[in-house]
């Protein structure tokens, strides 16, 4: 039996990596991928808590989280594609300069 604390340790390291990625990159796709890493770390923490407390509600929460992540990614990627079509560039720092 593995110490449950290890899972939370991995989850927090993963969270740190995701935060670093979001802060240091300007490319929209790369930021989306970093956000996905954040999501994975949160999911790992949630699952380890669920497995630790044996709560059925945690189960359903995880299901809901994964499903909503799927839809959210669909919307975000299509936004990125639209942005790319319109501007030929996916640098987020450039987007807020030119309004409209």
């Amino acid at each position: 039996m593995i110490n449950p604390y290890l899972y939370l340790l991995i989850s927090s390291v993963l969270f740190g990596i995701g935060v670093y990625g979001i802060l240091s990159k300007r490319n929209m796709i790369r930021m989306l991928l970093s956000a996905e890493i954040l999501f994975n770390s949160a999911l790992l923490a949630l699952v380890s808590f669920t497995s630790y407390t044996k709560n059925v509600y945690g189960y359903f929460l995880v299901f809901l989280a994964v499903g909503i992540a799927a839809a959210e990614v669909g919307v975000l990627v299509s936004l990125a594609i639209l942005l790319y079509r319109r501007r030929g560039d996916i640098d987020v720092m450039e987007v807020d300069k030119l309004k409209g």
Binding site: L8, S11, S12, V13, F15, G16, I17, G18, V19, Y20, L23
Partner: peptide
């Protein structure tokens, strides 16, 4: 990032 990871 490292600070947040350590806090968590």
């Amino acid at each position: 990032g490292a600070g947040i990871a350590g806090l968590l």
